[in-house]
Design a protein around this nucleic acid. Structure first.
Lengths: 148, 148
DNA sequence: TATTGTTATACTCTATAACTATA
DNA sequence: TATAGTTATAGAGTATAACAATA
């Protein structure tokens, strides 16, 4: 019998451990690479072409000013583009540039390779548990936040 | 059949999502609270009284200068203490103060409560998968890094 | 010489507050 | 008035490089 509390305790111990590893890996390559928030932003915009800044902020879970600056830096590096929304001039319409997509893919591949190496000795049943756990966590943590 | 690659892909999508939530929650309370790295540092030192700065840096996964500053701020806030190591004057001997332990426990409780709410609707079998997954991930990601 | 730590400097990520432009 | 976004400012967390003290 696994209690919710035990589950929470494990998450609080292990998630930062894994996250630290992902972050360090993404920052440690020689080639021009992306930080985790930059990576997540680009993945989102790549999947939602024409997304607004508010949508990015909400999805990534940061404030609008933070998102503005994050996107600004990506645009300065020619990884994303920002245009006026055709139907509402207050909004921006974001997209990943060709260069951005190339770098995004390279970054993703490097990180997946790294993670795969980490998981190399993990048993089949543990891998299944990980995939099931991730699905459950995605559901639990993607639920609409009220943001009061 | 779950491939290692699928497993890695899920981790890369979901771990940052959960981590963001934990981070936001820890920073959002009114009472004097801890950031995630501060929390992790204090948990480690609390479990390893007399730990050196190098040990903290290695465990948390940051550089020595970063650890030095992080600990510095904790000491300024009277959450930790730093003394000379009795047998090697180059080393420091870290400990959590009484005040620090109080705040650490309060912060842990708040975060666990928050996470438990998030996991409220998670099924028993999914909770089991999460606990098993966390154990596997702890093993996979705690392995000695070469730090070349 | 090697190890332990600190200081200097810089960049990213984040926030809140105040603002502009458009609807 | 309400919404979308930017700018100003500040603080935490991180890094690399250069340094000091001790072993």
């Amino acid at each position: 019998m696994v209690t919710t509390e035990e589950c929470a305790r494990e998450l609080l111990e292990v998630v930062p451990l894994v996250m630290r590893d992902i972050r360090t890996q993404m920052r440690s390559t020689r080639t021009p690479d992306l930080t985790v928030p930059q990576f997540r932003t680009m993945v989102f915009v790549d999947r939602h072409i024409g997304a607004s800044l508010s949508e990015v902020a909400e999805h990534i879970g940061i404030t609008l000013p933070s998102a503005s600056k994050l996107v600004d830096d990506l645009i300065k590096n020619d990884l994303m583009s920002r245009e006026e929304h055709p139907e509402d001039r207050r909004r921006v319409s974001l997209a990943v540039t060709r260069r951005g997509r190339t770098i995004l893919e390279a970054s993703r591949e490097r990180t997946l390779t790294y993670l795969s190496e980490r998981l190399d000795e993990t048993s089949q049943s543990d891998k299944e548990a990980i995939v099931e756990a991730m699905k459950a966590l995605r559901f639990a943590f993607q639920k609409q936040k009220t943001n009061i």
